[in-house]
Design a protein around this nucleic acid. Structure first.
Lengths: 229, 229
DNA sequence: TCCGCTTCTTGAACATGTTCAAAAGGCTGG
DNA sequence: CCAGCCTTTTGAACATGTTCAAGAAGCGGA
């Protein structure tokens, strides 16, 4: 059920401690030397346990990555509350949320690529679309729901209902870009955000124009259809 | 220089033969048992050569995948000429090209995920955005240039110039969807194509409306900026 | 023909993610 | 305190992608 862990039933306090020791050691090594160069043996040795023990808690190296991702999720959600409590402008809220994600994730940028490599594989439970990562995904979408709800944006109800998920998809796109971005200070990704958000904002407000509205309605229909089928 | 091969200088006829033997054996095994379950040892044995010999021609298992991808590219380009010579309707041309890609790629759908897994990793030379796959990418974009050029679509010049690359991006999106699509007969991906293409078509024709035009201009500007920076 | 150079081929060795049977540790009811 | 049972831990063994030093094969020129 949980995405973070593989074993939770009958867990012991000692066990929990070991699990966290392994995770924190792994994340530190990932940060220090990258995902690829960190071996399971190194993680185990550094944490003072055996290799098999690491596998007892995390069924693969990639699951350790997944755990990191969930961790980021929580950090993001927390870091974003201030912004969501303040501004009412839709564009500002969206920019704030996206930039915060960037800030929170920055320390991991170098090896994040490896995670999204795995995430791109459909069968992998680590895919952002998978059943297993549903909780994390929904938590993410929830943030965008807050972005929309608390904003000044006026929209037809059906589009408004669909929007959070669309914004999440937009974020996935930005993440994809971010992963490939090796400009200093992530200049290009920041540029992407500051230039696309106002566009999205304007585009959404254009939905009042009759001709545009028709297209948008169809678009929403398509998305619904694809989700259902 | 080439994307298909690692060693080309001073190649012998015999050498070329071995290279092709290894590639065709690999592709066959990939198709028969999937990418993951096909070991380099199996490929070598089946081809009647040593493991090291396979590595002499293809510097990694993933490069064998890359070779398959280039192969698909050629098949697609050829299969698409008939359509491009016929219809003038932009929507029909685009649908035709996308569907043909689907048909050409169908036999490999099962293990294609593994390729795109790799492709999603930024540093990988197999990434569709990488320098190494530039030739394949440009060949792909060229197809979409043909789609636009020979069509009845009337567009502002700057958008028209940018459009082929945007359509290629759209195809990347569809591929991403396709990789995740396990519906029978790829029903969902086909649905995605038949429902989004008319939308794109309508959206493009909307660019005459002043308010929309402004947004589109900005969008083109953003894309240019991001490509340049 | 023989020498030297490049091309090609080999297979053992290596690195590392993963598995598994066995043992150790710890808890609870009797 | 013991027996039984679940949790935790171990490390050797395994699978497989990859490397590499060594040799074989081919070829062109003297």
């Amino acid at each position: 059920m949980t995405t973070l862990t593989d074993v939770t039933d009958g867990a012991t306090a000692k066990g929990e401690q070991t699990r966290e020791l392994i995770l924190s050691t792994a994340l530190r090594l990932f940060r220090e030397q990258g995902y690829g160069k960190t071996t399971m043996r190194a993680i185990a040795t550094e944490a003072g346990v055996s290799v098999g023990n690491a596998y007892y808690y995390y069924s693969s190296k990639e699951h350790l990555m997944q755990a990191y991702y969930d961790h980021l999720q929580v950090l993001h959600r927390e870091a974003v509350q201030e912004i969501l409590a303040g501004d009412k402008s839709f564009a500002k809220r969206l920019i704030g949320v996206l930039r915060t994600w960037l800030d929170v994730s920055e320390p991991y940028h170098e090896f994040a690529g490896t995670f999204f490599k795995t995430a791109a594989e459909p069968k992998s439970p680590l895919s952002p679309f998978s059943e297993e990562s549903r909780p994390a995904r929904e938590a993410s979408i929830e943030i965008f729901r807050q972005v929309v709800e608390g904003s000044d944006l006026k929209l037809p109800a059906d589009l408004r209902a669909e929007l959070p998920e669309l914004l999440w998809l937009m974020q996935m796109g930005i993440v994809l870009f971010w992963v490939h971005d090796d400009s200093t200070g992530l200049r290009r990704t920041r540029l992407l955000i500051t230039s696309t958000v106002p566009l999205v904002d304007r585009l959404l407000r254009l939905t009042r124009i009759p001709g545009v509205k028709g297209v948008v309605n169809d678009l929403v229909g398509v998305i619904r259809q694809l989700k259902g089928v």
